[in-house]
Structures are given as structure tokens and as C-alpha cells.
């Protein structure tokens, strides 16, 4: 099947098999940030935006993106780059394999709710698994970023 979509701001037309999942399609189109951790919609690593909604790309058929905008971390570097320095300052990136999905979903959270409580952060990101960090460093990093913004340091 032929599909046309806007990937990170660029319009592309491609031929895909009916059962190709968006995750595989995106990796084949140069979006290495999109990671596969589980194949069962259980880890959050493959989070991308379909239009402006975060979705698990392992559970979305590529054909569903036809006529839509798809954004991966490659397309959000500008929006992410300031925030992620606060995660780096905690050392909470660790192995990094879960980072893109976690960063994407954090961006989605902050677009929806620019001033979340720690509990709201944890609830929103509950579907983003991380086996290295124990999560607390990620929460501290987000909190430090929000504080810096509030205090006008950014």
C-alpha cells in the first residue's frame, strides 16, 4: 500500500505492507530514536506523536499514519534539548535505551500540563518503563527543569 505522511515536518510517500507497524516503518526511515522494548505495548520505548497525540508505535499500523503528521524525537530536538540537560545533571539517562520514549512523553505531558505535581508526572509517565534509574532521578530532573523555568533561569 502507498501512504503519504508528514514525518518530522517532511512530507514522504512510501509503499508499505499492510501489516507493517509504525515502529518498523519509522526506524526504516532514519528515526533511530524510536526503540522497541517489548512488542506488547508494555514499555513505552516506542512513543511517538501521531499528529499531536503520543502513541505506542509498536501498536499502530504504518497505514494508520496515512494522511497524518508523525513526530519522533528527531523532530523535537529543539524542544527537548533544554529539558534533557536536567536529566543529564541527575545521571538519570543511564543506559539511555528508554530515554527517547520517556522524553517524548514528558514533552507531551508538559504541553498538556505545564505545571504538573510530582504525582502527576509519575502518573502520566507510568507507562514509560526504565530498568536502570529507579525513576526518581528522572522525576528530580523534570522538577529541576520546571523550577528553573519558574524562577526564570531558562
Amino acid at each position: 500500500m502507498e501512504i503519504t505522511l508528514t514525518l518530522n515536518g517532511r512530507r514522504i510517500t512510501a509503499s508499505v505492507a499492510a501489516d507493517t507497524v509504525l515502529l518498523d516503518f519509522l526506524r526504516a526511515h532514519g528515526c533511530a530514536s524510536v526503540k522497541c522494548g517489548c512488542e506488547t505495548s508494555g514499555c513505552g520505548l516506542c512513543t511517538v506523536f501521531l499528529d499531536d497525540t503520543p502513541v505506542l508505535s509498536c501498536s499502530v499500523l504504518a497505514v494508520r499514519a496515512d494522511g497524518h503528521r508523525v513526530t519522533t524525537l528527531e523532530g523535537l530536538e529543539a524542544e527537548a534539548s533544554e529539558f534533557v540537560t536536567f536529566i543529564a545533571d541527575q545521571g538519570a539517562e543511564q543506559c539511555g535505551f528508554c530515554n527517547p520514549g520517556f522524553v517524548m512523553n514528558t514533552i507531551a505531558l508538559l504541553r498538556e500540563n505545564p505545571d504538573p505535581t510530582d504525582e502527576e508526572i509519575r502518573a502520566y509517565l507510568a507507562g514509560n518503563l526504565c530498568r536502570c534509574s529507579g525513576y526518581e532521578g528522572q522525576t528530580r530532573g523534570i522538577r529541576a527543569y520546571l523550577n528553573a523555568k519558574k524562577e526564570g533561569r531558562l
Binding site: R27, A32, S33, V34, T72, L73, E74, E77, A80, S81, V84, T85, I87, A88, D89, G91, E93, Q94, C95, G96, F97, N99, P100, V103
Partner: peptide
């Protein structure tokens, strides 16, 4: 507590792992 040397590349999802 210096930053991990690969932190920013990893956080921005740059190609770094076997399959990338």
C-alpha cells in the same frame, strides 16, 4: 557529580546501539 559523557547523545535519541 559530572555528567555522563554520552548523556546528551543518549537523551536525544541519537544512533548509538547495535541496531542503530
Amino acid at each position: 557529580g559530572v555528567r555522563k559523557k554520552d548523556a546528551m547523545q543518549l537523551l536525544l535519541g541519537k544512533p548509538a546501539y547495535v541496531d542503530d
